[in-house]
Design a protein around this nucleic acid. Structure first.
Length: 554
RNA sequence: GCGCCCAUGGCUCAGCUGGAUAGAGCGUCGGACUACGAAUCCGGAUGUCGCAGGUUCGAAUCCUGCUGGGCGCGCCA
């Protein structure tokens, strides 16, 4: 509806300009917004005021001129009013609203799928945790956000690839191998002390025990470095399998796992650095190589080759992003923990040096999660191996509640996640509120079937009968869905879906409590059945985008 | 010290690239099941949008300064 009005208005403005009624150079960006106040109609536009200030005219007069040139071919408008300082208020005919439900019936599962992408490729990289331990709750939010962003883009016509970057190179991995070895030695009766930086979670001991069981004390005789390398590989492999399993249980499946080590294998990092050096972005200072990120707005230059000859994480990351682009993606989305925000200018410098537009990389920051239980914070320490894993969260509160809770806030704002609250099947827990609405509708539809009703198609329902204010409101909320998806996809803001979902469920519940769907009046019953079926379709489609189930009963 | 983010009812948060009288949920108080599921609904109360200036027809939103909080400032990832 919003789109249609925008089009009407754009044509009107164009028409005015063509006829010379409004002396416009370039046409303005026409914006139509849903009106907040019923007195202001359904939608309002400020075009007239924007134009008026540009051409120094009276805004109300401009509004007047524009409104006279609106060509309402489809007869959707009741009237246009000019109000306040120069707003154009659009009043939509009730029939026009109901007519929009046709799309819901015809498109079904694909209702609300805007074609923003036109098949262009988007790479969404998320989670990307080191395989040094199981995923904990902090990763869970990033997983949920990334997954839903990918869903949103996929439904919006992009060809989406979900990717996990395995940081399996570098000193952290070495620490992993060392940690396993220490536990191994401990199991063989040696007394060991764990230095700073070593991983001490129980899973380390389990891995060491597996190795011991399989190969006994064979590694005691081998050289230290070789053992650590073997143990590192083995542990990373085991942990990565667990990570995949946990993600799967959380409803997140990746298309590709890219290994940092692989980037080094065919000298990609070295070749990239040579390339950048040729372009003049690299300089040498003693043993180290520096990248002139300040040339692209970073606050200081960054090291890419360390004194010891090893490339930095940053160097590999540029190579990784080059690799992403080389695979033909127009847009690359990185989802990072908010504690990495200082890294952003560096990364943009990196892609600028690769000759890529800034817009082609979008970085979404996900704030860390405050884990609570009954309102009290749960202490976590990664080093000591004390943390709540994603698996434990899924096991305890369930996948639906967990995902929904992670998606209820803007991703860049802090989130309190209360385990007890997420488990509660009560009105404090919004996920059940929307699922309940879905189950309720299913229940009505089932009852209708028992009474011999079939769910009517659009043509079979007389929607003129849906005249109640609650019905019109419900129809409006349902038909807003495509706009919500489009907005959420364009802004990369998945939380808009949960807010919308909550509103739709609320509008439905309210309607349900006031009115009966099934009554003696067959025509009305059919019209209402069609309406609630439309609500159900949108509830289901939204929940699907969120990766949350839409139960038929609960 | 420098940089980024945040500050909206008692609490947790929305507010869609400046728009009309700032909205939800929770909590609180009071109501609604002999009709499709009460995990629901209906009603009441609560705000100097951190403070002070500025930009303009118009600011929670943009700019500057201040206060208070989070994070970052490695040849870690």
């Amino acid at each position: 509806m919003k789109k249609r009005l925008t089009a009407l208005l754009e044509n009107a403005v164009k028409d005015c300009a063509a006829k010379g009624l409004l002396p416009l150079g370039e046409l303005p960006f026409v914006e139509v917004d849903a009106a907040k106040n019923l007195l202001h109609g359904d939608y309002a536009s400020n075009v007239a005021m924007v134009l008026a200030s540009r051409i120094r005219e009276n805004p109300r007069k401009v509004a007047e001129i524009i409104s006279r040139h609106v060509c309402d071919h489809d007869n959707i408008l009741e009237k246009i009013e000019i109000a306040g300082p120069g707003f154009l208020n659009f009043f939509i005919r009730e029939e026009a609203w109901a007519a929009m439900l046709e799309d819901v019936d015809k498109l079904r599962d694909s209702y609300g799928a805007p074609n923003l992408g036109d098949g262009r490729g988007v790479l969404v990289e998320f989670v990307s945790a080191n395989p040094t331990g199981p995923l904990h709750i902090g990763h869970a939010r990033g997983a949920a956000v990334g997954d839903v962003i990918a869903n949103l883009l996929a439904v919006s016509g992009f060809s989406v690839c979900r990717e996990y970057y395995i940081n399996d190179a570098g000193s952290q991995m070495n620490n992993l191998g060392k940690s396993v070895k220490l536990r191994y030695l401990e199991l063989l009766g040696e007394k060991v002390e764990f230095p700073e930086g070593c991983y001490q979670g129980d899973y380390i001991g389990q891995i060491a025990a597996e190795i011991l069981k399989r190969d006994g004390d064979a590694y005691l005789a081998m050289d230290e470095e070789g053992v650590i390398r073997l143990f590192t590989d083995y542990a990373a492999d085991v942990i990565m399998k667990e990570i995949k399993k946990d993600l799967h249980a959380f409803g997140v499946v990746f298309d590709i796992y890219v290994s940092e080590r692989e980037l080094y294998k065919d000298n990609r990092v070295a070749r990239l650095l040579a390339e950048l050096e040729e372009k003049g972005f690299i300089y040498r200072q003693g043993e180290t190589l520096w990248f002139k990120t300040t040339a692209f707005g970073d606050e200081k230059d960054r090291v890419v080759i360390r004194k010891n000859g090893e490339p930095t994480y940053f160097a590999a990351d540029i190579a990784y992003h080059q690799n992403k682009y080389s695979r033909g993606f127009d847009t690359v989305i990185d989802i990072w923990g908010a504690d990495h925000h200082g890294y952003i200018p560096r990364m943009y410098a990196g892609i600028a040096a690769l000759g890529r537009e800034k817009d082609s990389l979008r970085i979404v920051l996900v704030q860390l999660v405050n884990l609570m239980r009954d309102g009290k914070p749960v202490a976590m320490s990664t080093r000591a191996g004390q943390f709540v894993t994603i698996k434990e969260v899924v096991d305890e509160v369930g996948r639906d509640a967990a995902r929904y809770n992670f998606l209820m806030r803007r991703s860049d704002s802090h989130l309190d996640f209360d385990l007890e609250l997420a488990k509660k099947q009560s009105n404090e827990n919004p996920v059940y509120y929307v699922q309940y609405a879905h189950a309720r509708i299913c229940s009505i539809l089932k009852r209708a079937g028992e009474q011999g009703y079939k769910i009517p198609a659009y043509e079979e329902a007389d929607l003129h009968l849906l005249k109640l204010p609650e019905e019109v409101e419900l129809i409006k909320t349902v038909t807003r869905f495509p706009e919500v998806v489009e907005g959420a996809a364009a802004a990369i803001e998945p939380h808009r879906l949960t807010f919308y979902l909550n509103e739709l469920a609320a509008t439905f519940h309210s309607y349900y409590n006031k009115n009966r769907v099934l009554s003696e009046d067959e025509g009305l019953s059919k019209a209402r059945l069609f309406l609630v079926e439309s609500v159900r379709t949108v509830l289901r489609n939204t929940l699907k985008l969120l990766g949350v189930s839409a139960p038929e009963e609960m």
